[in-house]
Simulated scan of single mutants.
Amino acid sequence: MPSPGVRPPAREDRWSRIAGLCGVVASIAWLAGDILLLGKPMGTADRYPLLASYDGTARDSLAAMLPASTTRLAWGALLGVLTGPLYLVACRHLRQGLRPARRRLSLPPYLLLVTGFALAPFAHGSFYYWGQAAKAVHESGAGSGVLTGLPGDMATVLFIPYGVLLACWLAGSVWMAVCVLRGPTAYPRWMCAVNPLVCIPVGALLTRVVPGAAGVAVQGAALSVGNLLFFTLSTAVLWKRRE
């Protein structure tokens, strides 16, 4: 009989599975949100002169959001923000998978990944305000340099938390891989290659090879596709090993 205050293994397994499924559900919701935010055919600079002021990721994101309706952008942002807490629950699943290893080895990657996922809803939701600001500048027809630069100023602030969360995911992924390799954890050794550092580039590759209208729809969903792959594999592996 388990000692007082200690959950029975069966209950721990059940909560671990529920937490893993939370990660899968959140990733699907965020994928849908990305499609609504960034899944429109990109506008061009001749139709949206504002785009001439930007390049790279900022230009591509604005080019996808400018043709989208306000309602579409709002739902795209809200799907991510309102389901963001599910990612924090899902991190408990990762903690359970790593916990058999020593605390000093298993706790840091968990904390780093939690930090990244805690920042993600702010970054995702901010796309609504960024896109709306760009649409307002375009529709006003104003030639003010201050107004034209407003979306760029918002993008600068937006990309700061994105940079921090990606850095946390990078550090957490490397630490998680080391933890799985050194063990013992609930994961098999090959799971050292299943983490955001690996899954997100794979997600980016998948979004690039999808053809036609489906490829346009997922053009901005690399992070969500990567996280869906990550949590799906982790949940499936731990589910099977604990049966």
Rank of each mutant, 00 (worst) to 15 (best):
W30A: 08
G33C: 07
L37G: 13
L38T: 11
G39D: 06
K40C: 14
P41M: 04
P41V: 02
P41F: 00
M42G: 13
T44W: 05
R47D: 15
R47V: 15
R47A: 15
P49M: 03
L50W: 06
L50P: 06
A52N: 07
A52E: 11
D55E: 09
R59A: 07
R59Q: 12
L62E: 02
L66D: 12
L66E: 10
A68S: 13
A68Y: 10
S69G: 14
T70S: 15
T71S: 15
T71R: 13
R72G: 11
R72W: 10
L73Q: 06
L73R: 07
A74F: 14
L78R: 09
G80N: 04
G80H: 00
G80A: 12
L82V: 12
G84A: 11
G84E: 03
L88P: 02
L88D: 06
A90V: 03
H93V: 03
Q96V: 15
Q96P: 10
R99T: 11
R102K: 12
R104N: 12
R104G: 14
L105R: 12
S106R: 01
S106C: 12
L107Q: 13
P108G: 11
P108R: 13
Y110W: 13
L112V: 11
T115M: 07
F117Q: 15
A118I: 01
Y128C: 11
K135L: 11
K135N: 10
E139W: 05
E139M: 05
E139R: 06
S140K: 00
G141R: 01
G141W: 00
A142H: 06
G143P: 03
S144C: 08
G145E: 13
G145A: 09
G145T: 12
V146Q: 03
L150E: 08
P151S: 00
G152M: 06
G152L: 00
M154H: 09
A155E: 04
T156C: 07
T156L: 09
V157A: 15
F159H: 10
I160S: 04
Y162G: 13
C168F: 01
C168T: 08
W169V: 05
A171S: 07
G172T: 00
V174C: 00
W175R: 10
A177K: 00
